[in-house]
């Protein structure tokens, strides 16, 4: 009855990349289902934003408006999609979002680097560095991916590769997606057929 039992061996195996574009998803009514959370958390461990920053960076400040008008959509998306992943892989880095700016105001991302002299990262949470070097990205009128590319070139962040376990989960998810698409297509056909039969029956009855 299900395609699972007779999977076509010639079928092209699904590519485990779909989740990479997935948004960071939080909340579920179904959290107790086995593996569910671990798959959900995959979206935080991997994807755009999942990168390890060099040790000199100790703080990232984002500044943009509360609503999206005036080119403030990209910064918000960056915060929602990339920043959780960045925070997961760089838990010691302080990340702040200030959304008190007016819509015609700037949208900036400021990076704080420890100066070379004090770059010994014994205290990663060192918050006040008078000699800190700052670099700024103008985020206004840019997409979240555009901001991320600029961020990577500026910081030299190293992207995180999926572990073996992650790859297995990704593969599993991709398979589920293709199965689900197949099933829904088949069911759609089936429903169509039933509907047509009912209509025919109706017509016969009316005659």
């Amino acid at each position: 009855m299900r395609s699972v039992t007779e999977r076509d061996p010639r079928r092209v195996p699904p590519q485990p990349t779909e989740i990479w574009t997935a948004k960071v998803y939080c909340g579920s009514d179904n959290a107790l289902q086995t593996d569910y959370i671990s798959k959900m958390l995959l979206g935080v461990r991997l994807g755009p934003g999942a990168a390890v920053l060099p040790k000199e960076i100790y703080r990232i400040n984002l500044q943009f408006a509360k609503s999206v008008d005036g080119g403030h959509m990209g910064p918000r998306k960056f915060w929602r999609n990339m920043l959780p992943r960045l925070k997961y892989h760089n838990p010691t880095v302080d990340m702040n979002v200030d959304r008190t700016v007016a819509n015609d105001g700037p949208a900036t991302l400021t990076l704080f680097f420890h100066s070379q002299s004090s770059s010994t990262p014994t205290t990663p949470a060192e918050q006040t560095d008078p000699n800190a070097i700052t670099k700024t990205i103008n985020m206004k009128n840019k997409t979240d991916t555009g901001i991320w590319e600029e961020f990577v070139t500026l910081t030299d962040a190293k992207a995180v590769r999926p572990t073996e376990e992650d790859t297995r989960l990704l593969q599993e998810l991709a398979e589920q997606n293709t199965d689900s698409a197949e099933n829904s297509a088949r069911q759609k056909e089936e429903n169509k057929r039933i509907k047509r039969e009912r209509q025919l029956l109706q017509m016969v009855k009316q005659d």
């Binding site: 939080c26 593996d35 915060w79």
Partner: peptide, 26 residues
């Protein structure tokens, strides 16, 4: 009560790390 035999369980620090990622920017 659900059977927790197969449920994913986390240590406090791991859970905190994820939660801090979800709460970033607030």
């Amino acid at each position: 009560t659900e059977d927790l035999k197969n449920a994913d369980k986390y240590s406090l620090v791991e859970a905190m790390r994820y939660i801090r990622a979800f709460e970033v920017g607030y």
